[in-house]
Structures are given as structure tokens and as C-alpha cells.
């Protein structure tokens, strides 16, 4: 645990470590969760391009699911998935559990 009054904090609030957004888990901010319908998905990867949290997991060029530690449930993937496909549905967290 960092001491927030510690005077050894880096001067000027500079963050010396790159890419550390990964260690900040934003998954807890979710009210709705995306659910993928594998049958419908054509792997066009539009959702991967549009997701603001880099939470679309792609393996071998295929959309395989969501990184739930970082997905904030914004629903952009659902909106952007082409209308004729609609492979993503947003469901409430309670419902999903």
C-alpha cells in the first residue's frame, strides 16, 4: 500500500512506469455486461477497434470474449456491432450472475 503522504513520491507527479493503465481494474465500474453470441459473430473485429478499454479479447484473429477486469460495460461494442449481425447483447450484472 502506498503511503499517500509519503514525500518520496515522484516529483511533479511524474509516472515513471509506462502502460500502467493495465494495473488499474475498471471492471468494477460495470452495471451492464456484454455477452457474445458466438453463432452470430463474423469476427469483423469492429468491436475490438471501438472498445475504449481494450477489453475485447482477440486470439488468432478471432473475437473470443471480453476482459472482464477492464470492461466498463459502456456498450459501445454492442452499438458498433453491425446491425445485421448484432452478436453482442448487454445484460445487467445481476442477471448475468
Amino acid at each position: 500500500m502506498t503511503d499517500k503522504n509519503n514525500e518520496e513520491l515522484p516529483e511533479g507527479g511524474v509516472i515513471h512506469e509506462g502502460g500502467n493503465a493495465d494495473s488499474y481494474e475498471t471492471g468494477g465500474w460495470r452495471k451492464l455486461r456484454p455477452v457474445l453470441d458466438n453463432e452470430k459473430c463474423t469476427n469483423c473485429l469492429i468491436c475490438w477497434v471501438m472498445c475504449p478499454d481494450s477489453a475485447i479479447i482477440v486470439e488468432d484473429g478471432k473475437m473470443v470474449g471480453f476482459d472482464m477486469e477492464h470492461c466498463k460495460g459502456c456498450g459501445i461494442c454492442d452499438t458498433e456491432c453491425p446491425p445485421k449481425i448484432k452478436a453482442i447483447k448487454m445484460v445487467s450484472e445481476e442477471e448475468a450472475d
Binding site: K4, E11, V14, G18, N20
Partner: peptide, 25 residues
Amino acid sequence: ENPISIGAMTLPDYYMTFKKQQSEA
């Protein structure tokens, strides 16, 4: 090779500590 972030937001938990450092400097 070692990128840094400058100008990150700090909330009430850290802001004052940085100001104290500045005051001491």
C-alpha cells in the same frame, strides 16, 4: 525506451503531498 506520464490527475489523496514537496523545494 522508458516512457513516462506527465500531468496525470491527482485527487485529494495525493494532490496535497505534491504541493508540500513543491513548497519544500
